[in-house]
Design a protein around this nucleic acid. Structure first.
Lengths: 166, 166
DNA sequence: GTCAGTGCAAACTTTTTGCAACTAC
DNA sequence: GTAGTTGCAAAAAGTTTGCACTGAC
């Protein structure tokens, strides 16, 4: 028996939506959806276009168009990691989230059953939830060390300057 | 005894950081921080500048500069509601989150002790957490009704067209 | 054959940057 | 006085849109 992948589920949702709304199934949309579900890490619109450069070329406008549709269908989730928008598949429904260092921009995936459980038990106000995005911002230990080091150097120089003045 | 407000806490953090790093305390930064903490709902950079138009005028560049600093200090959190970036105070540390309708863009605040509790117990990987952003995307009941209605109308017209053909 | 979807390029919006003037220290 | 900060305007980056062409139904 074949295993049903998240992509299969997403494609089925997309196709039935298109069919029911008199919209056309195009190779572009399918290819973009596949590229999205093939990725293991969040991506920007431009990245997904570049990734498809050698397989099924599409324009950036089409990528944005498609992502907009996928967002409304809950097939894709949107994030704000750096300054640009990042997307990722939302099937299976979130079982992980991200931590971001606001200094170096490093994004790390975090798993937490407790959080997933708590979110799934949350009562939303008249909202049919399609996807959930959770993100913790802070300073990673690496950057913290660099900041402390730079700070110490600054303090030493300040002291030296004060001593020289005397 | 005076009550210490979130703004007071944020300002103290900011000032000690500025002092320790040889940066200057300016009226602009304080004013922007105050405007941010006075707001009850998330805001865009342009909105905060407009809000300050009649009290303490600053340029948009300064707003972005300040927000960047506040983000790094964990005084402000960043969201992706619509297409533009939204910010809000991150003190007190998140005790709420947001639900967004991807159709009409309506943002609603949701409180959930269970989620807050779960997040606070999560172990992050070498990250000192400054702020947390949680957002659920989906379709609100109002939009769902409109979509269903439009869909039904589409189906009826499709049927009518098919009948005419015969 | 019809009309939704696509690609291109131009428009638009949001955010960042260079530089001169200003001001906290 | 020095150097961090601000404001302006220009540039860059990211996203959306108009229109003619293409292709799914």
């Amino acid at each position: 028996m074949e295993k049903v992948t998240p992509f299969d589920t997403a494609l089925a949702t997309l196709n039935s939506y298109l069919l029911e709304h008199g919209m056309r199934r195009t190779l572009e949309r399918t290819a973009i959806l596949r590229a999205i579900y093939d990725r293991k890490v969040p991506f920007t619109a431009e990245e997904i276009r570049q990734e498809m450069e050698n397989t099924f070329r599409v324009s950036l406008a089409t990528v944005y168009h498609s992502i907009d549709l996928f967002l409304r269908l809950g097939l894709v989730t949107c994030h704000t990691f750096g300054s640009t928008l990042c997307y990722e598949p939302s099937i299976p429904l979130r079982d992980h989230f991200y931590q971001v260092c606001v200094h170096c921009g490093t994004v790390t995936r975090v798993e937490s059953e407790a959080v997933t459980e708590a979110i799934s038990q949350t009562r939303f106000r008249r909202l049919h939830v399609a996807s959930v995005a959770l993100c913790a911002y802070g300073t990673c230990s690496r950057c913290q060390a660099a900041i402390t080091k730079a700070h110490n150097r600054y303090l030493r120089e300040k002291e030296k300057a004060a001593a020289k003045k005397k």
